[in-house]
Computed example of a mutant assay.
Amino acid sequence: MTTAAQYAEFAAREAHEVSPVYERLSVAVSRDDEVLALLGTLPEAKRQPNLLFGVVRLLGGSVEDPGAFHDYTVANWPAIEAEMRARATQTNEPGRCAVLLPVLAELPQPLALLEVGASAGLCLYPDRYAYRYGDHVVGSGEPVLECAATGLAPPPGVPDVVWRAGLDLNPLDVTDSADLAWLDALIWPEHAHRRARLRAAAAVAAAEPPLLVRGDLVDDLPALAAQAPAGATLVVFHTSVMYQVPAPRREAFVEVVRGLPGHWIANERPGLLPYDALPEPPGGALHVLALDGVPLAWTRPHGQAISWFA
Rank of each mutant, 00 (worst) to 15 (best):
L291N: 10
E106S: 15
A266I: 06
S240H: 05
A149M: 13
A285Q: 14
V257Q: 04
E280L: 14
W298H: 02
D127E: 09
E115W: 05
R300I: 06
A247E: 11
E9I: 04
A130H: 12
Y125C: 05
R57F: 03
L100I: 00
H193Q: 10
Y129C: 14
G117Y: 01
V137F: 11
W163L: 06
L25E: 13
R57V: 00
S307E: 15
L272Y: 06
W163Y: 14
L224N: 09
P279G: 15
D168W: 00
W77V: 07
V254W: 05
L113Q: 10
E23D: 04
A12S: 13
P222N: 01
R269G: 01
T299C: 07
R57I: 04
P126Y: 06
M1Y: 13
A232S: 12
V137P: 14
H287T: 10
Y129H: 15
S240G: 03
R199N: 05
D176K: 01
S140N: 07
V137A: 15
E268T: 08
E280P: 08
F253N: 09
V18P: 03
L183E: 08
D135R: 06
A226G: 11
H287N: 14
V162N: 14
E34P: 00
Y131P: 11
E106R: 15
A185I: 09
A37I: 06
E106M: 10
L113E: 02
L211Q: 05
